[in-house]
Each structure stands twice: as C-alpha cells, then as structure tokens.
C-alpha cells in the first residue's frame, strides 16, 4: 500500500525514511531552505523551511518533519509566508547582503528565498559590519554575509573532520571561528574548501574566482582530479577556456563531493606561461624550437637506427602514471609492436 501526504491539497506518494522536504523536492515543489544540505542533514535552525501541518501546534520545519500517511501540509499559507518573510527579513537586516558584486550572485540560497518571497529590500536595517578575512591562501571569509546556518561547521567537523571551524560566542554575536578565533590563514585550516562548497551564501568564497565570472556565464564539465589515486570527481566551472572554480561532484563515487586543497585549488598550472609550446631539439648551445615533422622524424629515425644497430632491447620507455590510460596503452603498443621489446615500464613506485 502506498502512502500519501497532501501538499497544498495535492496527494503525493512518499517512501519511509524521507522527510517532507525531500518528498516535496523530489516532486518539483520549492520550499526555501538555508541550513539544510543533503550532506549535512536537517539542522532546524534557519526556520525558513517551515510548513503548516493540520493538527500540529506551531509551524514545523519540513527538513526534519517525518511524513505520515494522510498528513495535510500547507507550504504557502499566509502564516507560513509571514514566518518565512520574517526570517529572511531578519537575516537581511542583520548582515551586508549586497548582491551587486557578490561572487555567489545567481547561486545564493538566501537570494533565492528572498526572490520567491518577493522581498526586494529588507523591511528594516540593523547593521554592524565585521572585517572580511582574506588571510588564507585560497578562501575568503566574509562574516557580513554569513547567516550562521552551520553547514560549514558540520562539514568541517563531521564530513572532512578537520576540526577547524566552530560556532564561537553566542546570541547575535555568534560567529563562525577558526580554531581559537584565529584568522583562517593563521589557523590549522588546510584549505580543503569543504566550507566553500557547502556555504549557501557568499560567506566563504574562492579567492581565485573573484572577479572571473558571474555564475550564469560559466558552464560545468565533469572530470577526474589529476592528483592522487583517489580519483575524485570534479566539476569544472568554465568560462571560455578559463576554469573559474572547481567543486566536488555531489553524490558522486568515490568522493561524494569532498575534495582536498590540491584538487580544489591546484588547477591553474595548465595556464602557466611555462608550458612547453613547441617541440624542442637540443643543439650544442641549448634547445631550439622545431616543427612536429622535424622532431618526430628525428625521434623515429634515431629509434630505428638504434634498433637496427643494437637490437630492440637497446630501446626502453617509461610511460606516465599521470597521463590517461589511452596514452599508456599506446606507449606499450609502441614498444612491443613497433620497437619489438618489452622494455616498457612506468613510475609506479613513487
């Protein structure tokens, strides 16, 4: 027997183990959320996902609400909308949520919530500004944009377990701290960027991405990290030929969205001016540029010559443990088939 809940009068079938929010989202219904993330789970803190449930006192947070058969839920009653508006207005009033140059403009969950609630300017202002923290190598923290949703903290302590971020202080002075409230660059933070990936607003941003592109100017390409053997799945956010930022692919094997400092920020070596751009041939006083034909002919001729003079085993090749499978396959094919030797190996042991 399938079980139903009624969202705004519409019957929707649900499976056990899911929350009302999950059921709603799977059915294409928008309920704003700020502190909820699939990976950090329900926190019930921001209160923006509240709904009204027939027969239950008070508004319920849909992120933590377990559906039961026949449950009648209102997601857009006046009471619900008033509560959500109050929450979003309070957040807007107590920070500096200036979207104009914000890196997250267009991908901001607070902006989305305000948009859907029709809030153009906050209803009131109570502002105290804090310093931005740009002390770390790759991450900028802007406490004025922080809505204290706690996703970064759950990420840092529960997901990557680097144990750097935490809530410090309390009441409206609560803030996200690094270690004993140190600037991020002086803390034990290893810049894995989990906080950046989980942040719903612009409180954690990538230094390298600043000013590079608006969110809608980039497209994403999924690929595999070029560093260690875990093989993390990356989403490259690309504008033209430029990687603007890198994020981990949520829900993907093997990394489930996580990355490390190298995978997330170590991408721009490909744009280095040091890249070798033409084939080079050594001469008495150094290397000179050459055409492909000249260089390849030289290699082929020398290899043939050595093979003929000293036999195929006088040639040897080392393939790359960095390069793609297809390159390694062709390397061994070259040596086995063309040269006629099994002198092929790679740098497996470093």
């Amino acid at each position: 027997m399938s079980k139903n809940i009624f969202i705004d009068g519409k019957p929707i079938t649900f499976e056990d183990g899911k929350t009302v929010l999950q059921v709603a989202r799977e059915n294409g219904l928008y309920i704003p959320t700020l502190c909820y993330h699939a990976r950090t789970g329900p926190a019930s803190m921001c209160r923006v996902c509240v709904v009204e449930v027939e027969g239950m006192r008070g508004l319920q947070t849909s992120c933590s609400l377990t559906p039961s058969d026949g449950m009648k839920i209102q997601t857009a009653s006046q009471r619900v909308l008033d509560a959500r508006k109050a929450v979003v207005n309070l957040l807007l009033a107590n920070g500096n949520h200036d979207c104009l140059s914000c890196e997250v403009n267009g991908a901001c969950e607070l902006q989305d919530a305000a948009y859907h609630l029709g809030i153009e300017t906050p209803a009131f202002f109570v502002k105290e500004y804090d310093e931005r923290d740009a002390s770390a190598a790759f991450i900028i923290r802007d406490p004025n944009k922080c809505i204290l949703c706690g996703r970064c903290i759950v990420g840092c302590n529960g997901q990557v377990v680097n144990e750097v971020l935490e809530f410090g202080y309390r009441d409206s002075h609560t803030k996200v701290i690094c270690d004993a409230d140190l600037p991020m660059g002086l803390s034990t933070c290893v810049q894995c960027g989990e906080c950046v990936q989980l942040c719903p607003v612009g409180a954690f941003i990538e230094k390298k991405a600043v000013g590079k592109a608006r969110r809608w100017e980039t497209h994403t390409v999924r690929t595999t990290c070029p560093y260690c053997g875990v093989g993390c799945q990356l989403e490259l956010h690309v504008k033209g030929e430029q990687i603007v930022r890198v994020t981990g692919v949520e829900g993907a094997e093997p990394n489930q969205g996580h990355l490390c400092v190298k995978g997330r920020y170590g991408y721009d070596f490909i744009y280095s001016d040091d890249r070798i751009k033409t084939p080079l041939i050594r001469e008495a006083n150094g290397f000179r540029e050459a055409s492909w034909d000249e260089a390849l002919d030289l290699v082929a001729t020398k290899f043939q010559q050595i093979k003929q003079e000293y036999g195929p085993n006088a040639l040897a090749g080392v393939s790359s443990a960095r390069s793609i499978n297809e390159d390694s396959y062709y390397m061994q094919r070259l040596f086995r088939e063309v040269v006629g030797t099994n002198n092929i190996d790679h740098c497996a042991r470093v």
């Binding site: 019930s44 803190m45 921001c46 209160r47 923006v48 109050a86 929450v87 309070l90 957040l91 009033a93 107590n94 009131f124 109570v126 809505i147 204290l148 706690g150 809530f167 202080y169 309390r170 009441d171 409206s172 002075h173 609560t174």
Partner: peptide, 20 residues
C-alpha cells in the same frame, strides 16, 4: 538577547532587532 544561544534565526536576530 544576551542569553539566546544563537542557533535559530528568529530568536537570535529577532531579539537583536527588538532590542535595537
């Protein structure tokens, strides 16, 4: 306001706005 734990937006920010 002083005693709000700072978790929930309505309490944390609401008490600040009301106090203000």
């Amino acid at each position: 306001h002083h005693e709000s734990c700072g978790q929930c937006v309505p309490c944390r920010e609401g008490s600040r706005v009301i106090e203000n």
